[in-house]
Simulated assay, not measured.
Amino acid sequence: MTWLKDIIGTEKAIIAMCHFLPLPGDPYYDKEKGMEYVIEMARKDLLALQEGGVDAVLFSNEFSLPYLTDVKTETVAAMARIIGELMSDIKVPFGVNVLWDAKKSLDLAAATGAKFVREIFSGVYASDFGLWNTNVGETIRHQHRIGAGNVKLIYNIVPEAASYLADRSIESIAKSTVFNNRPDALCVSGLTAGSITDSQILKLVKNTVPDTVVLANTGVRLENLEEQLSITDGAVVGTTFKYEGKFENHVDINRVKAFMDKVKSFRKPLITV
């Protein structure tokens, strides 16, 4: 049994993305509609995801494009307000992700009571956002300084729009990340949000670190969910749940229900054995 059962309530868990619209300070923030509109749309998506039957929700500033690796205070403040306003509506376990800043993600988790955080905690990358360095030792010390020691850490080891500066195999990255950092889970992604994660890469990672939770981070769809969940311990799902399966759209409850019905059917034999 993994921590997913204790924290989220099931194995083969589906963590649904609740994407926030651009926030104050972001280039595409709608100043006319303001924060009230951002909150309204976040609530609409959250309720659709929950009614559709997802196991957990991950709040992120997905539309804060282009992303920062040293996020500004106004972004974290805005996200904390949104989650605070939604608190009475949140009925499932939730996590947070302040893209792409591990410390700020932990700050937000501590402030809101989030159960888990997904981030780029370790490694050095060449990315669309420039040279991307991390300091995992300092980040984990920061986690404990702010009283967030119980927050589960999901390490994205194949970040979107970035690649390791060193020429390393995915097996090497997975093995050393687990040995050195003891992550609660590893996330494996495709190139961008919504891009299918290669099943062969997922198999390599899971076979290399069989005792660590491994999640498919992008591109899990109705037609491939059984294959991906047969390899992994669960998935983070965003674009699939949107109208027409498009990243920029809002959540379509019918797509969520169809997906989760198939997931629950897939899980039944696992539960009864």
Rank of each mutant, 00 (worst) to 15 (best):
159 P>G: 10
114 A>L: 05
126 A>K: 06
115 K>L: 12
130 G>Q: 07
112 T>V: 03
153 L>G: 01
130 G>C: 08
159 P>Y: 02
154 I>M: 13
163 S>I: 09
160 E>F: 02
147 G>A: 13
129 F>T: 05
107 D>I: 03
129 F>S: 10
148 A>V: 09
145 R>C: 09
130 G>N: 04
154 I>N: 01
103 K>L: 03
128 D>S: 13
129 F>I: 10
99 L>W: 00
143 Q>E: 15
112 T>G: 05
143 Q>L: 14
146 I>L: 10
108 L>R: 11
157 I>L: 10
150 N>L: 10
120 I>M: 05
111 A>C: 04
114 A>C: 09
132 W>G: 02
114 A>F: 12
99 L>G: 00
118 R>I: 07
133 N>D: 10
103 K>E: 15
135 N>E: 14
147 G>Q: 09
127 S>K: 03
103 K>Y: 05
124 V>M: 07
107 D>R: 05
150 N>Q: 13
111 A>V: 09
155 Y>C: 10
155 Y>M: 13
118 R>H: 07
114 A>M: 04
154 I>Y: 12
163 S>A: 12
129 F>N: 05
141 R>Q: 14
134 T>E: 12
121 F>R: 00
140 I>T: 03
101 D>L: 04
116 F>R: 04
153 L>F: 08
113 G>K: 11
100 W>K: 04
125 Y>M: 07
162 A>L: 04
153 L>V: 05
161 A>G: 01
99 L>P: 00
131 L>D: 01
124 V>T: 13
151 V>S: 09
151 V>N: 07
134 T>L: 11
135 N>F: 15
152 K>D: 08
146 I>H: 01
119 E>C: 10
111 A>Q: 12
119 E>Y: 00
135 N>I: 09
121 F>G: 11
152 K>H: 12
101 D>Y: 06
140 I>P: 00
152 K>N: 07
125 Y>K: 07
127 S>W: 04
148 A>L: 10
159 P>K: 03
123 G>W: 02
102 A>I: 00
138 E>G: 09
100 W>F: 09
127 S>I: 04
117 V>M: 03
111 A>D: 00
111 A>H: 06
127 S>T: 06
141 R>V: 00
140 I>N: 01
112 T>F: 03
163 S>W: 05
152 K>F: 07
101 D>M: 06
140 I>M: 15
159 P>L: 07
137 G>N: 08
110 A>E: 11
139 T>N: 14
134 T>P: 00
140 I>G: 01
139 T>H: 11
107 D>W: 05
99 L>C: 04
137 G>S: 12
124 V>I: 11
126 A>F: 02
111 A>P: 00
136 V>A: 15
154 I>W: 13
123 G>S: 11
108 L>Q: 10
154 I>C: 07
137 G>C: 06
123 G>E: 08
162 A>P: 00
105 S>G: 13
162 A>D: 07
104 K>L: 07
133 N>Y: 13
